[in-house]
Computed example of a mutant assay.
Amino acid sequence: MKKIGLLGGMTWGSTIEYYRLLNEGTRKRLGGRHSCKILMDSVDFSELHELISKDDWTSVGTKLAQAALNTEAGGADMLLIGANTMHRVADTVQGALEIPVLHISDAIANKAKELNVSKLGLLGTAFTMEQDFISKPLSEKHDLEIITPASDVRAIIHDSIFNEFAVGKFLDSTREKYINIIKDLEANGAEAIILGCTEIGLLIKASDCNIPLIDTVQAHVDAALDAAIV
């Protein structure tokens, strides 16, 4: 099995899910006492959040590239950036490495293909929903149609991610808001919903909705295990 590099801490709650799912997936595929070969560099999300608040994405890219280099130096064969929003600097990180960065949009596309869907609702931070670092490769590379909620709803989602999920709050009232948002996207033609923030899957489960959900943590993990177990 190849060694998977993981950039964690964005946030650590979702990083726990990456670690759990990588190991559970390895055991399911290989059986017995197998566990996943993982080399993680976990960053301080507070430092990144401060840079993001200043719109200093250049420094975000520099910090994540250095963390990624640490995993490469430790023998990682590939890298996962354990956050959707941080894929805004995926090209910067990839440019610093010899090993491949497994882009989360490719993992999302794999799941959409499995579900045989082509029109997807996208939930995430304002950066993820309003910029094109996730939606562009999905549409141009994978021929998928991406829709997002209205601007006022996007603001609600963004606020919940940074002011609730990032500090470990997962409220029933917020869950109800998300369920209604998902229903609206379904009414607008979405065939599946991308949980395009790694914390949203800690709030919303498949049993909460009548429409398929693409949990990007699970999708990313599955893509990594496909590449690592050969």
Rank of each mutant, 00 (worst) to 15 (best):
residue 89 V to S: 00
residue 90 A to V: 08
residue 91 D to Y: 03
residue 91 D to I: 01
residue 91 D to N: 12
residue 92 T to D: 14
residue 93 V to L: 04
residue 93 V to D: 00
residue 95 G to S: 09
residue 97 L to Y: 10
residue 97 L to W: 05
residue 97 L to A: 09
residue 98 E to G: 12
residue 98 E to R: 11
residue 98 E to D: 12
residue 98 E to W: 07
residue 99 I to R: 14
residue 99 I to C: 10
residue 100 P to N: 05
residue 100 P to C: 03
residue 100 P to I: 02
residue 101 V to Y: 06
residue 101 V to D: 06
residue 101 V to T: 08
residue 102 L to Q: 09
residue 102 L to V: 11
residue 102 L to Y: 05
residue 102 L to H: 09
residue 103 H to Y: 13
residue 103 H to D: 11
residue 105 S to F: 01
residue 106 D to G: 13
residue 106 D to A: 15
residue 106 D to H: 15
residue 106 D to C: 05
residue 108 I to H: 02
residue 108 I to S: 05
residue 108 I to W: 00
residue 109 A to G: 09
residue 109 A to I: 10
residue 109 A to H: 06
residue 110 N to R: 09
residue 111 K to H: 12
residue 111 K to S: 13
residue 112 A to Q: 03
residue 112 A to T: 03
residue 113 K to D: 06
residue 114 E to V: 12
residue 115 L to T: 04
residue 115 L to K: 11
residue 115 L to W: 06
residue 116 N to K: 15
residue 116 N to Q: 14
residue 117 V to W: 00
residue 117 V to T: 15
residue 118 S to I: 11
residue 119 K to C: 08
residue 119 K to E: 01
residue 119 K to H: 08
residue 120 L to V: 03
residue 121 G to I: 00
residue 121 G to V: 03
residue 122 L to V: 01
residue 124 G to F: 03
residue 124 G to H: 02
residue 124 G to M: 03
residue 124 G to Y: 00
residue 124 G to N: 01
residue 125 T to P: 04
residue 125 T to Q: 03
residue 125 T to A: 01
residue 126 A to T: 11
residue 127 F to S: 13
residue 127 F to M: 07
residue 127 F to V: 06
residue 127 F to E: 02
residue 128 T to W: 00
residue 129 M to L: 14
residue 129 M to G: 06
residue 129 M to F: 04
residue 130 E to D: 12
residue 130 E to Y: 08
residue 130 E to N: 15
residue 131 Q to I: 07
residue 131 Q to F: 05
residue 132 D to P: 04
residue 132 D to G: 15
residue 132 D to M: 06
residue 133 F to W: 01
residue 134 I to Q: 07
residue 134 I to L: 15
residue 135 S to T: 02
residue 136 K to L: 04
residue 137 P to E: 02
residue 141 K to T: 10
residue 142 H to G: 03
residue 142 H to K: 08
residue 143 D to N: 15
residue 147 I to T: 12
residue 147 I to S: 09
residue 147 I to M: 09
residue 148 T to C: 14
residue 149 P to M: 06
residue 149 P to Q: 05
residue 150 A to D: 14
residue 150 A to S: 13
residue 150 A to T: 13
residue 151 S to D: 15
residue 151 S to Y: 11
residue 151 S to W: 09
residue 152 D to F: 10
residue 153 V to N: 11
residue 155 A to P: 07
residue 156 I to C: 12
residue 157 I to P: 07
residue 157 I to M: 09
residue 158 H to D: 05
residue 159 D to M: 08
residue 160 S to M: 15
residue 160 S to Q: 13
residue 161 I to M: 05
residue 161 I to F: 07
residue 161 I to Y: 00
residue 161 I to T: 01
residue 161 I to P: 05
residue 162 F to E: 00
residue 163 N to C: 06
residue 163 N to K: 11
residue 164 E to S: 06
residue 164 E to V: 01
residue 165 F to A: 00
residue 165 F to D: 00
